[in-house]
Simulated scan of single mutants.
Amino acid sequence: MEFDELQDLARGVRQKYAAREHENYGRTWSREEIMLGFLGDVGDLAKLVQGKEGVRPREDLDEAFAHELADCLWSVMTLADSYGVDLEEAFVSTMTELNGVLDET
């Protein structure tokens, strides 16, 4: 799947969440609330990393770890989209810059 297809998929999920939020709360989540949700996901990911390192084992660890990584990626894609950031372009540009810096040192 191409990056723009992934972005469309993320947008579609966000639209469904927004509809559910509107039904449940009378409004959709703000960008700040999406960011707070992302922070919660990062916390969950941190616990799963501990599991991968043997500190917090669980039976479904690999599945949960992959799921949480995907949740975090969705949050990043959603935040970028909501602020008009072309994430694919920003990623390529940043990685190119970092490669150049690392090649120089």
Rank of each mutant, 00 (worst) to 15 (best):
G40R: 04
I34F: 14
A80Y: 02
F91E: 09
G51S: 13
E89Y: 04
E2V: 04
K52G: 03
D103R: 14
A70M: 10
E59M: 05
Q15Y: 07
G51T: 12
D8A: 15
T96R: 10
G84T: 05
E63Q: 09
L48M: 02
A64N: 12
G54P: 01
L45C: 09
S30P: 07
L9Y: 15
E68P: 00
W29P: 00
V49N: 01
S75M: 14
N99G: 15
R27H: 12
S93N: 10
F65I: 01
A90R: 09
M35Y: 10
D86G: 01
T78D: 01
L69V: 12
N24M: 13
L48G: 00
E33V: 06
V13D: 10
D103H: 14
R14W: 06
E2Y: 02
L48Y: 04
S75T: 04
R14A: 13
R20Q: 10
F91L: 14
D62R: 11
E88R: 13
W29C: 08
L45R: 03
F38W: 09
S75I: 02
N24S: 10
A66T: 08
N99C: 08
W29N: 07
L73S: 07
E68L: 02
G37D: 08
D62P: 01
L39C: 14
H22E: 14
S93F: 09
G100W: 04
V85P: 00
Y17D: 12
W74D: 05
S75L: 07
D62S: 07
E21S: 08
T96S: 06
E5M: 12
E21I: 00
E23G: 03
D62M: 12
M95Y: 08
E5G: 14
Q7Y: 03
A80L: 07
E32F: 14
E53A: 15
T28D: 12
G37Y: 05
K52A: 13
F91P: 00
Y83I: 13
E63D: 12
G26L: 07
L98N: 14
K47M: 12
M77F: 07
D71T: 05
D81L: 01
L9P: 02
E68S: 07
E23A: 15
E104A: 15
E32T: 12
P57T: 08
Q50P: 01
M77Q: 14
E32K: 04
E89A: 15
E32Y: 14
